Amino acid sequence: MGAILKVEDINVYYGSIHAIKGVSFEVNEGEIVTLIGANGAGKSTTLNTISGLLHSKTGSITFMGENLGKVPCHKIVSKGLALVPEGRRVFLQMTVQENLEMGAFTQGGKTMDADLERVYEQFPRLKERMKQVAGTLSGGEQQMLAMGRALMSHPKLLMLDEPSMGLAPILVEQIFDIIQELHKAGTTILLVEQNAQAALSVADRGYVLETGKVVTTGTGHELLESPAIKKAYLGG
């Protein structure tokens, strides 16, 4: 399994604020890799930089062997990299099915019916609500819709930004069950999550960010068992 994504020495600024400080990590094909850390640690900024929404002053981001530095952000999706943004951001006025169809725009509609069928199999709740306007869905259903929409683009890497945010515990469990199912079906996943316990429980490997720097890395199991991580993030 080779590295599908390599992030090397990225430094990102918001004006004079140095938000990401020399971050490097990689994601191998078939893995779930998680970035954990407190609010403001730089997790979402890292994902937005990989997606091309922000730019690093240094270093490189290589995806499937191609340097993304010069690729415009709207073309990055067609390379096979899909981001489910924090806060879901579904098209609230559109139906469930219309939202999913929007996710397929990079595919040119060639496999639309088969892709819809596949997403409805993975998310039966969405099939039941296919004609419903997305703004009337619950938070958990909107999260499923955002994930389903990203899958419509046939991603080689699915990036999830805080998928459990604002959801009731039972829904958090459902979302993480779905993440594991997607992984079993062969999807490579980069997961940013404040719920460190849930994230490390499903991850092959994890990186801990503090104030814009990677401070620790290890397997999901190693980090779950680490006394320092337990104390800082798991309430142990």
Rank of each mutant, 00 (worst) to 15 (best):
A3P: 12
I4D: 02
L5M: 03
L5D: 00
K6L: 11
V7Y: 02
D9T: 03
Y14G: 13
S16T: 15
K21V: 04
S24G: 08
S24N: 06
S24Q: 03
N28P: 10
G30Y: 12
G30S: 10
I32V: 07
V33H: 00
T34K: 11
L35V: 00
I36P: 02
G37K: 06
A38Y: 07
S44Y: 06
T45H: 04
L47E: 01
N48W: 04
N48G: 11
N48R: 04
N48M: 09
I50F: 07
L54Q: 13
H55N: 10
H55V: 14
S56F: 08
S56T: 14
K57G: 13
K57C: 11
G59C: 10
S60W: 14
M64K: 12
E66I: 07
N67R: 07
L68D: 12
P72E: 01
H74T: 10
I76L: 07
G80D: 11
L81E: 00
A82C: 14
V84E: 03
V84R: 02
R88G: 04
R88N: 07
R88F: 13
V90M: 03
L92M: 15
L92C: 14
Q93P: 03
M94T: 10
V96Q: 06
E98T: 05
E98W: 06
N99E: 05
G103T: 01
G103V: 00
G103W: 00
A104C: 07
T106P: 02
Q107G: 15
G108P: 06
A114W: 09
D115F: 05
L116F: 02
V119K: 00
V119Y: 01
V119C: 02
E121M: 09
E121H: 13
E121Q: 13
Q122N: 12
Q122F: 09
F123E: 04
F123N: 01
R125A: 11
L126S: 04
Q132K: 00
A134V: 09
A134S: 08
G135N: 05
T136Y: 08
Q143Y: 04
L145H: 14
A146D: 00
R149A: 01
A150M: 02
M152W: 02
H154G: 03
P155K: 10
K156F: 05
M159T: 11
L160D: 01
S164G: 07
P169Q: 06
P169S: 03
I170R: 05
Q174K: 15
F176R: 06
I179P: 00
E181A: 10
A185G: 03
A185W: 05
G186A: 06
T187V: 15
I189N: 06
E193C: 00
L200W: 01
A203F: 10
D204L: 11
R205V: 05
R205G: 05
G206C: 06
V208W: 12
L209E: 01
T211C: 12
K213H: 15
V214G: 11
T216G: 10
G218E: 08
G218Y: 05
G218R: 07
T219L: 11
T219Q: 12
G220Q: 09
G220C: 01
E222S: 01
S226D: 13
A228D: 15
K231V: 14
A232Y: 04
